[in-house]
Measured scan of single mutants.
Amino acid sequence: TTQFTVHSPEQAEQWKEYAKQKGLEVHVQKKNGTWHVTIH
């Protein structure tokens, strides 16, 4: 599991796309103005 924080919805979307291409599961949670992205 990879977990990191991004600071814009655009970055979060890019990671979603990346994960989809790799066939991975991605979870994005918005918290205090940042987005926590978890890739399984």
Rank of each mutant, 00 (worst) to 15 (best):
G33Y: 04
V28D: 00
Q21P: 02
L24D: 02
Y18C: 11
V26S: 04
K22H: 14
V28W: 03
I39H: 00
F4W: 04
Q11A: 14
H7A: 13
Q11P: 02
I39D: 00
Y18F: 10
W15T: 01
K20I: 10
Q11S: 08
V6Q: 02
K16C: 13
E25H: 13
Q29E: 14
Y18G: 02
P9V: 14
T2Q: 13
F4E: 03
T34S: 14
W15F: 05
L24T: 02
K16F: 10
L24E: 02
L24H: 04
V28E: 00
K30W: 12
A12G: 03
E10R: 06
K20D: 05
V37H: 00
T5Y: 13
T2F: 15
K20W: 07
Q3W: 13
Y18A: 04
G23D: 04
H7P: 09
T38Q: 05
E17R: 07
K16N: 05
H40Q: 09
W35D: 01
Q3H: 15
Q21V: 10
I39Q: 00
P9D: 12
Y18Q: 03
K16S: 06
H36C: 14
H40R: 10
H36P: 01
Y18D: 03
H36T: 14
W35K: 01
H36M: 12
K16W: 09
H7K: 09
T34F: 13
T38S: 06
V37S: 00
I39N: 00
T1P: 09
Q3N: 09
A12P: 01
K31Y: 11
N32P: 02
A12S: 03
P9F: 15
T38K: 04
S8T: 14
T38M: 08
T5Q: 11
T1A: 09
H40V: 14
A19K: 01
S8F: 07
E25N: 10
Q21E: 11
G33K: 05
T5D: 11
W15S: 01
T1C: 15
E13R: 09
K20F: 08
E10H: 07
T5K: 07
T5S: 07
G33V: 02
A19I: 03
Q14G: 07
Q29I: 15
K20V: 08
V6I: 05
N32G: 12
E17D: 10
E17L: 09
H7S: 14
W35S: 01
